[in-house]
């Protein structure tokens, strides 16, 4: 039986990818940010997940305005790394897990989530930056990845509660997959940031820190946050945090916090990171 062993939350800023790809992780500006992921890379080396179910958002890369799916699941065998305007990041291509992805797609659609099923898509920094943060710079990613793209660009975006409930449906789907697999679910994006307009640069550290804490043991508060509160309190791009709630919904009510990291700034963004072991047995 497949089982979700852990949930990972992490921001996914493009500048982090650039810092890695141009070997600047030890520069003064970046070192404190990357230091917070050292634990995580070692932990992944011992965890050796078979599959990561990776919740992210596309940033006007695979999806133009012609076609905006609220939720899209990748069921392909592999995914190319997107050229976001500077050429593709120099990272390995992403291998999918089509069996499990199709199983989840089928199960979740039958649980009344109206997914778009995607056989071909290039993946952008939203997906590759978290892989770099958690796995470093391998020749080949050490596990398979199921990309799950959430619309957080064009309003209305799905509510936090809808995302949380979707996480529960994904959990049910993974639990019912017959192959023995170590599956992690990652929720990416956030934390507070605003990239646009005269209010750009907004960072709300107390709000972010409360969010990190409540991800562990008070998710009921988080699922009730309406979109306008994310915008007001965490900046227009802070809404990405609803993707963390998909991850949280897929975990047990009780989780064990293994690691937490918070750093400001990375470019315009507050970096948040959590590793939650599923269940309350450590």
């Amino acid at each position: 039986m497949a089982r979700i062993t852990a949930g990972v939350a992490t921001s996914h800023v493009p500048a982090i990818g650039r810092a890695i790809d141009t070997d600047q992780t030890q520069a003064d500006y970046w070192k404190p940010m990357f230091d917070g992921f050292e634990f995580s890379r070692k932990w992944e080396e011992s965890e050796k997940p078979d599959v990561v179910f990776l919740v992210y958002n596309d940033h006007a890369t695979a999806f133009s305005l012609d076609f905006i799916p609220t939720f899209a699941i990748g069921v392909a065998e592999d995914y190319a790394v997107a050229d976001e305007g500077f050429g593709p990041r120099p990272v390995p291509a992403v291998e999918g897990h089509a069996d499990l992805a199709w199983h989840i797609a089928s199960s979740v659609i039958q649980q009344d989530f109206d997914l778009t099923v995607v056989n071909k898509m290039d993946v952008d920094h939203g997906l590759t930056v978290p892989l770099s943060l958690m796995f470093g710079q391998p020749e080949k990613w050490p596990c398979k990845v199921i990309p799950f793209a959430v619309n957080v660009v064009q309003y209305p975006v799905p509510s936090g509660r809808r995302c949380y409930n979707l996480g529960k449906a994904i959990r049910k789907a993974i639990d019912s997959f017959s192959e023995d697999l170590n599956v992690q679910i990652w929720g990416t994006g956030g934390m507070s940031h605003q990239l646009q307009g005269p209010r750009a640069g907004l960072i709300n550290q107390p709000w972010d820190k409360a969010f990190l804490s409540d991800m562990v043991d008070n998710v009921a508060r988080l699922v009730s946050i309406p979109p306008e509160d994310y915008i007001r309190e965490a900046g227009s791009e802070g809404i990405e945090l609803v993707m963390w709630l998909i991850m949280r919904g897929a975990l047990d009510d009780q989780v064990t916090e293994l690691h937490r990291h918070y750093h400001v700034p990375a470019s315009n963004t507050a970096i948040g990171h959590l590793i939650l072991k599923n269940g309350n047995n450590s």
């Binding site: 209010r199 306008e228 915008i231 007001r232």
Partner: peptide, 15 residues
Amino acid sequence: PRPYDDVPGTTVFDE
């Protein structure tokens, strides 16, 4: 009106 219309210096990309 939308509940986010009163956030300053911010354009929400709605419909």
